[in-house]
Amino acid sequence: MSYPMVFLMAATVLGATELLPVNGGVYIPFVQEMPSQTVESFLLQKHAVTNEDFLKFVKRSPRYMRSKVPALMADQNYLRDWVDDLTPPSGKEHHPVTNVSWYVANAYCRHLGLELPTTAQWELAAASKNYEKEILAWYSAPGVNEAPVQSTFATESGIWDLHGLIWEWVQDFDSEAPVQAEAFCGASAGGAVDVSNYTSFIRYGLRSSLKANYTVRNLGFRCAQNQ
């Protein structure tokens, strides 16, 4: 069975978010040691997975309920702001689900016949040279943006909230880790491609600080599909 077919079936059951096409291109990783990557055009969910979406998923896959998820797959803050196993926080049905681990986010996407986007895919979809100052301001602002999906801005492809709402898991979040120590921890930022690109640095820093069972209050996800 082809991926689109699986998606349509699962999507019908879960009412999952629309996928929109994103043009391919070349992604230059943040660390010099990594070769640039050519990315094929792909599909990406229009907005992040919401609490409501996620509720449908845990109903179908009870092993991902808060009380049942194994500690190896999610730390103790998993779905922390949910009222109980099957009750998202009230009034936040359309807010992005956060405090989910990579393992569970990955399982969600797989369940729909989709995948988490790769770093290269996500960065290409989110690239927006014109908004660096706004993005930096959002990264600098403390606290969590308590807002529903589709409340910040959309890219030309119609993809919402890639900046300004939450952080998002990517499939290969730890891919830079083996070569990142110098760029990351050294004040000199040796090995970074563009030392003046603070916003890339910050995303890179965040990805490097994560482990697959971590859950973070402002970290959610969306799914992608390779064509």
């Binding site: 803050n77 990264y139 120590a181 921890c185 965040l206 600080s209 994560l210 973070v216 209050r217």
Partner: peptide
């Protein structure tokens, strides 16, 4: 919003603790 860590100049070792203390929000 972002991860943090600490480099203590009083520590002897790579990064002064930086890599060992890299901490995601809520951890």
């Amino acid at each position: 919003k972002v991860p943090h860590n600490i480099d203590l100049h009083a520590a002897t070792g790579p990064g002064g603790g930086a890599a060992a203390s890299l901490t995601a929000p809520g951890h």
